[in-house]
């Protein structure tokens, strides 16, 4: 059945409903006072272990890259740039110039277009995003650092948790293993 309009009215209120309303409001307040629904993350003692597929920081697998420049072309923030590097052709042994992408995290908006457009899956996301750079220059990667997964300091110090949806409590925080699956 397609959507249809339904007329509704505000229910009027009388003396009794006022009394009831106050009572209900206090009752629910008291209920949550004794049975609170907390889901605070004690960061950085705990950190959220994000799911695979999260669009976090990006890493290049250089030997898969075919230098097609699609990633740089589709980047909406002009964060991905191609740099020219001299390489030696393995077959002929000749020197030639090849282009590889580097990323500027000052600009990147983590839209993931570049990862999705790469025809050889030479780029991938790491599932974390809380990394602090001390200066603007640090956030600009060169070809070397773009091939390494950025150091995830929070994971070294904190405990990994994850929020799962629960029918009664909303979000429930559970402990997970550092690597791989979930642990209750």
């Amino acid at each position: 059945m397609p959507p249809r309009p339904v007329e509704k009215h505000v229910h009027p209120r009388g003396i009794f409903s006022r009394f009831k309303g106050n009572l209900e409001a206090i009752a629910i307040g008291v209920k949550y006072f004794f049975d609170p629904k907390r889901s605070t993350l004690i960061y950085p003692k705990e950190y959220i272990k994000l799911r695979e597929g999260y669009r976090g920081f990006i890493v290049l697998v250089k030997n898969k890259c075919i230098s097609c420049s699609s990633c740089a072309r589709i980047c909406p923030a002009a964060a991905m740039k191609m740099v020219k590097v001299p390489v030696t052709d393995p077959k002929t042994g000749k020197q030639r110039i090849k282009k590889f992408p580097v990323i500027n995290y000052n600009r990147c908006i983590f839209c993931g277009y570049c990862v999705d457009v790469c025809p050889t899956e030479a780029l991938y996301h790491v599932p974390y995003h809380d990394i602090v750079y001390e200066s603007m220059e640090e956030a600009v990667t060169d070809l070397e650092s773009f091939q390494k997964e950025p150091e995830y300091k929070t994971a070294k110090e904190g405990l990994p948790v994850r929020y799962i949806v629960d029918e009664v409590k909303g979000l429930v925080k559970i402990r997970v293993k550092k690597e791989g699956g979930e642990k209750k």
């Binding site: 249809r4 309009p5 339904v6």
Partner: peptide
């Protein structure tokens, strides 16, 4: 002006008068 699949879904558009 239904778009996507909204015309195939069963839901109401509440309309208040006040």
């Amino acid at each position: 002006h239904p778009y996507e699949v909204y015309d195939q879904l069963d839901f109401e558009i509440p309309v208040f008068q006040e």
